[in-house]
């Protein structure tokens, strides 16, 4: 499909050298300690985690599935990509709580939120799952790259699977997370450039924005330009009930940890930010740029559809974005385009290699096998496990080449089945380790029942995914709610330490009152005597630790801004009515959020950073099973 000239090859090689060399350059920083190799020393300004969130989110198969949903559904297909919007509320809620926990991984967080044997088993459970899951994701995106290289160059599939991943492993192994974020930053810039360029070239080739619209109207399918082209309340391809379920999963999911499969990746980015404020802005900006990316893609793909509206086979039309790039770009720019495809691929591979190695090194090797290991030894284990993950992913990729789509459905089941426990663990003090573990166990059994056993015996019809979600949620709750209530709450000392450190949102009344009684936190002013400005602009540390109306303004506005950005960008590029207003509204909304929340985030960060060194020391004592020196 691609017509490469010498100039194209030179451009592609130049990009590759820049991206790999730029990342490798940081290897001296990475070898200093475990904290450097996996969190860049917890010192990154917000724009580095933000670019890493965006770059990791963008994999080689992402333009395929985004093209697939837009080609099949028109503009409303953008809502299928809106699951990323968990970052809208997540940035202001779960990111703040997780960053204050200082946990390297979600598995480590489990042992801070919960205590005793139950929490320890949860940590091992999640660590084993995540080591496996990262190998699975590496195999999945590796195979996608194999298919793209087969399409572009006619290479055998295994070449595209092995070669780019091995190049990525070279700098990820040497420079750890420093290499990952610096590489992601360079790769993110290249990827954005290519996505914007190819979309604009695509729209231009279809006769400009007016041409795209006229072609779509001419074939009588103007519903494709409507983001709310519902097919009914419950019937058809795009019912209202699907849309509402999607909004609940993604938007409300921002109150939890693990409600999206991306959480585990983003948690590492959150923890690498130098302050709570940087963690919040990093996740928010990463999510926003990802949705803007989808808006650009959708415009290009609608243009592709308007030129070739009759491709019946999904495997063919999913390559629409790649075809726009390879077939419409002039000599030289095709090389840049392939450089961008490499960038998109490398950034995803590097992140998952480092994340899988982190779970193995921190939660399995250091916690369970060698608690007394030196920093040098831990970095060495990080490098070896990076290499083992790489080799494992090759086997996995080749094994699942034909069934990837089905296994992605398994990811959905695991996300859907524990969506509610993942929120409850953050917002409800009474939820305990046994309840959460029961939620996970129940998910396996309930998924077998709902997806296969009951339909096979004709007891239950095969349900669409969005109804399956509610059934999985309800049946899971039948198991984990009684388990929670029939077992004891976590010990108050454990809850107090976690509460004072992270100040979680939600129903934490008994723990809050006990913390006040013991003098661990100051009593907050009673509501009735309180007089305060509508929007508080100056904060004491005690005031900033409470959840207040300023947080809720950010929480409510943020998803609205995300939706307006995503839909607005596509409409603006196609000169559709309302596009400009949606984008302007999103920019204004972003300004309001910043104005309202920034003083508070600065106060939270300033106060917390003063205590962070002591907290980190306690964290490192705990991971080595040592008693802590005082509180």
């Amino acid at each position: 499909m691609a017509n490469f000239t010498i100039l194209d090859v030179l451009w592609a090689v130049a990009f590759l050298l820049l991206m790999v060399g730029g990342a490798f350059f940081f290897y001296r920083l990475a070898r200093r300690s475990e904290s450097d190799f996996f969190l860049a020393g917890r010192g990154l300004p917000w724009w580095l985690p933000a670019s890493s969130v965006f770059s990791t989110h963008t994999a080689t198969d992402t333009p395929m599935w985004v093209t697939g949903v837009i080609y099949a559904n028109g503009l409303r297909g953008l809502w299928y990509t809106f699951f990323t919007a968990w970052t809208a509320i997540g940035a202001f809620v779960s990111a703040r709580i997780f960053r204050r926990s200082l946990a390297y991984t979600q598995a480590e967080w489990q042992t801070q939120r919960f205590g005793g044997l139950g929490a320890e088993m949860l940590r091992g459970w999640m660590a084993g799952w995540q080591v496996f899951m990262n190998m699975f994701i590496l195999g999945w995106v590796g195979i996608a790259m194999g298919k793209v290289c087969a399409l572009a160059f006619g290479w055998p599939i295994w070449v595209g699977l092995v070669l780019p991943s091995a190049i990525t492993a070279f700098y990820t192994l040497a420079a750890g997370y420093w290499g990952v974020v610096m590489g992601d930053f360079l790769q993110g810039i290249v990827a954005i450039f290519a996505i914007v360029l190819v979309s604009l070239v695509g729209v231009s080739a279809a006769g400009g924005p007016i041409g795209v619209t006229e072609r779509i109207v001419a074939i009588g399918e103007q519903w494709r330009l409507d983001a709310f082209a519902f097919t009914g309340w419950v019937d058809g391809d795009f019912p209202v009930v699907w849309w509402l379920t999607m909004l609940v999963i993604s938007v409300i999911g921002g109150f939890g940890m693990g409600t999206s499969i991306d959480w585990y990746v983003e948690a590492q980015r959150i923890q690498s930010a130098k302050t709570v404020r940087d963690a919040t802005y990093g996740l928010w900006a990463g999510g926003a740029v990802t949705l803007i990316r989808n808006g650009f893609w959708a415009a290009g793909i609608l243009a592709f559809f308007s030129m070739l509206p009759n491709i019946a086979d999904a495997a063919d039309y999913e390559l629409g974005w790649f075809r726009l790039g390879f077939e419409l770009l002039p000599t030289g720019l095709i090389g840049v385009f392939f450089g961008a495809i490499l960038a998109i691929h490398l950034s995803t591979i590097s992140s998952h290699l480092n994340l899988g190695a982190l779970y193995f090194t921190r939660d399995i090797y250091q916690r369970y096998l060698k608690p007394e290991a030196s920093e040098r030894r831990l970095v060495w284990v990080g490098r070896v496990s990076t290499f083992v993950l790489l080799i494992g992913s090759f086997f996995y990729g080749l094994m699942m080449e034909e069934i990837t789509r089905w296994l992605i459905f398994a990811l959905w089941l695991m996300m859907a089945g524990i969506w509610l426990p993942n929120i409850l663990q953050v917002v409800w003090w009474r939820f305990n380790a046994w309840g959460y573990l029961a939620g996970w166990m129940a998910n396996l059994g309930v998924s077998w029942l709902v997806v296969w056993v009951l339909p096979a015996f004709g007891v239950l019809p095969k349900l669409p995914d969005h109804l399956q979600f509610w059934l999985l949620l309800a049946l899971g709750a039948v198991v984990f709610v009684p388990v929670t209530l029939f077992t004891k709450p976590e010990k108050m000392d454990q809850l107090l330490r976690y509460y004072v450190m992270t100040r979680p949102i939600g129903w934490w009344g008994p723990v809050h009152r006990e913390a006040v009684r013991r003098g661990l936190i100051e009593k907050t002013a009673a509501k009735s005597t309180e007089s305060r400005p509508v929007i508080r602009r100056t904060w004491t540390p005690q005031q900033a630790d409470e959840w207040t109306r300023e947080d809720w303004i950010a929480v409510i506005l943020s998803p609205l801004v995300f939706a307006a950005l995503m839909i607005g960008v596509t409409k603006l590029l196609l000169l559709q009515p309302g596009g400009l207003w949606l984008v302007l509204g999103a920019v204004l909304g972003t300004g309001v959020i910043y104005w309202v929340i920034d003083p508070k985030l600065r106060a939270v960060s300033g106060e917390y950073e003063a205590q962070q060194a002591r907290y980190v020391e306690q964290l490192e004592q705990r991971v080595r099973w040592q008693k802590e020196g005082g509180r």
Partner: peptide, 15 residues
């Protein structure tokens, strides 16, 4: 299906 859990139980060291 994590059943890491066994390793955690074995490791679980009156900490």
């Amino acid at each position: 299906y994590s059943f890491g859990l066994g390793l955690a139980w074995w490791s679980w060291h009156g900490p």
